[in-house]
């Protein structure tokens, strides 16, 4: 297991899969920004009216972060942003479930989802978070090694 986690090829694959997932999840939101704003509103985490700002920028943040991970540019910044977004998603989903809000997840599309589907999304987000944090740490270690070599 440890060997796999030190394998550069493995992390390239992880990076591409994680990036592709975010690109895929941003597509439907970009095509239906209005619907996505409604989904955000149902989470009741933002002051009324602010959901539009998030609906405009969040899908692009997902898309660009995902794209950068796929093409292998700005990897550390992108993976850190990726992990931060996942933490926010997990908090948003969990608080909505705990408060008993009728939410439509808005995770991979703006279509409605059931409570059990939201739980699955939270678990999936945790798995993605595990890999994105480890990807960031792997990339940091790689950079340290390069720095030490140059010194």
């Amino acid at each position: 297991m440890r060997k796999i986690f030190e394998n550069k090829q493995f992390w390239i694959l992880v990076r591409i899969v994680l990036g592709a997932l975010f690109i895929y999840s941003s597509m439907d939101k970009l095509a239906n920004m209005g619907e996505f704003a409604k989904v955000i509103y149902f989470y009741r985490m933002l002051p009324a009216g602010w959901e539009n700002l998030l609906a405009i920028f969040l899908p692009w943040l997902e898309f660009i972060t995902g794209l950068l991970l796929v093409v292998g540019r700005f990897n550390r910044g992108a993976s850190l942003l990726y992990s931060s977004m996942l933490v926010i998603f997990i908090i948003a989903l969990s608080q909505a479930l705990l408060r008993g809000l009728d939410i439509s997840c808005g995770c991979f599309s703006v279509k409605p989802s059931t409570t059990s589907e939201v739980w699955v999304r939270i678990i999936l987000d945790f798995i993605m978070l595990f890999f994105s944090v480890n990807l960031y740490m792997f990339l940091s270690r790689q950079e340290e090694k390069i720095n030490q070599k140059t010194i």
Partner: peptide, 17 residues
């Protein structure tokens, strides 16, 4: 470097959005 990368990504997101 990471902070700079994040700043660039956010800037791109703002403009494109």
């Amino acid at each position: 470097r990471t902070a700079l990368e994040i700043a660039v990504i956010i800037l791109i997101v703002l403009v494109v959005g």
